[in-house]
């Protein structure tokens, strides 16, 4: 079966430094792929490159058979490759519902003119109510991001990504700063996505979460893939343990 997301030999250089080097990852529709590695291993840069936020990335990025590497970030998102940010980055001026609507609505060239005359046209896409239902944020939709707790903001970040009708979501540290209870709920949500036909690439530091919800894990260190395998294989992998705890580990 062809992978949903096919990354082949992805590379990013910053002033002579190879931040991401020859990274290849395949994510399948029905599986959650974890991407882990110590601080500075190049995980966020990899996500940035996949989503088009790094101007000079090399390599092949293919989503459901469609080549994306020459598209700007917003077109990749419209094509179904939607990400979240480590620092959440919600739109503070908008309510939660509006945050979702903005991600769901695709404007036409005449939308501005129409909006000036008739702002309350029915624009709310089904994906918005789906995303609200999946993430169970019904109580929050009329609040603004600043009125939410950190954990709630994280969940809304995921909800906004889902509102964009993604084929695959890239979650950049969605559990950072969540308490164990919130992390559990997030884990359930992530694990449920493949059943709805949404692929997941998950970056996180919370190993309990990653080992729990991921079907496969790719480990990066110094911008290169040092291991790929099931959670069980990764837990026992000496190279991975060395990368995390230092080479002096016996």
């Amino acid at each position: 079966m062809n992978p949903l997301l096919h990354i082949h030999q992805l590379g990013v250089s910053y002033g002579g430094l190879r931040a991401v080097d020859d990274v290849s990852i395949d994510v399948h529709t029905d599986r959650v792929m974890g991407l882990i590695g110590p601080n500075g291993a190049g995980k966020t840069t990899t996500i940035d490159a996949i989503c088009g936020f790094v101007p000079k990335a090399t390599g092949i990025i293919e989503l459901a058979g469609r080549r994306l590497e020459s598209l700007p970030p917003h077109s990749r998102a419209r094509a179904g490759l939607v990400r979240t940010f480590q620092s959440v980055e919600l739109f503070d001026d908008l309510t939660i519902r509006e945050n979702l609507i903005v991600a769901a609505s695709a404007p036409r060239w005449y939308s501005t003119m129409l909006d000036a005359i008739h702002p309350n046209r029915r624009v709310t896409a089904e994906s918005v109510s789906d995303a609200i239902e999946m993430t169970k944020i019904n109580d929050l939709i009329d609040l603004r991001p600043k009125q939410l707790s950190h954990g709630q903001r994280r969940i809304v970040g995921v909800a906004r990504a889902l509102a964009g009708k993604p084929k695959l979501v890239l979650l950049d540290e969605p559990a950072a700063g969540l308490d164990p209870d919130e992390t559990d709920k997030l884990g359930e949500l992530i694990a449920s996505l493949p059943k709805r036909g949404i692929g997941v690439l998950l970056v996180d530091h919370d190993m309990t979460l990653v080992l729990d919800v991921c079907d496969d894990i790719t480990v990066l260190d110094f911008g290169r893939v040092i291991a790929t395998g099931t959670p069980q294989e990764i837990r026992g992998n000496q190279a991975v343990i060395a990368a995390y705890l230092g080479s002096a580990h016996e």
Partner: peptide, 9 residues
């Protein structure tokens, strides 16, 4: 330090 063992040594 993130290299725990190196740091502890």
């Amino acid at each position: 330090e993130q290299h725990v063992n190196a740091a502890l040594s």
